[in-house]
């Protein structure tokens, strides 16, 4: 499972990041990995954003109570009231195997996620 926390629907960096991940789904699938995007935007905002961009993965609304899941993953920015740009890769037992927090405005790409998935796969097969 790949959890991608991000600050806001429609913002330029998030749009780029999610567009890349949308493209990456076929590669994530090879590792039997499911991606979910999470932000504090509400479900109607998510649905509209997802439809506009043609996303093929779910966006979860950490909307009420606001940021509750983001806080559990230490990925909430209290000052601006948004999720930070944080990535988590969990294995099949739900154990966090990798995480990454991007500086504000930086798109982390997908390379780190692929490294993590490869490592989990190797561990499983060794």
């Amino acid at each position: 499972m790949i959890l991608a926390f991000y600050p806001a629907d429609w913002s330029p960096v998030c749009g780029d990041q999610m567009a890349l991940y949308n493209e990456m789904l076929q590669y994530f699938r090879k590792f039997n990995a499911q991606l979910v995007g999470i932000s504090v935007d509400g479900k109607w905002c998510h649905m509209s954003f997802s439809k506009d961009r043609g996303f093929h993965f779910p966006l979860l609304a950490d909307f009420e109570p606001k940021g509750a899941v983001s806080k559990m993953y230490e990925s909430y920015d209290e000052a601006v009231g948004e999720s930070r740009r944080a990535l988590y890769v969990l294995d099949e037992d739900g154990i966090i195997r990798w995480n990454h927090l991007s500086p504000v405005g930086i798109n982390p790409g997908a390379d780190g996620i692929m490294d993590a998935l490869e490592e989990i796969d190797q561990r499983k097969n060794s």
Partner: peptide, 12 residues
């Protein structure tokens, strides 16, 4: 080429 770019950190 897309894949190798992604592995090189191309994000947009």
């Amino acid at each position: 080429e897309f894949y190798s770019g992604m592995r090189s950190g191309v994000n947009a």
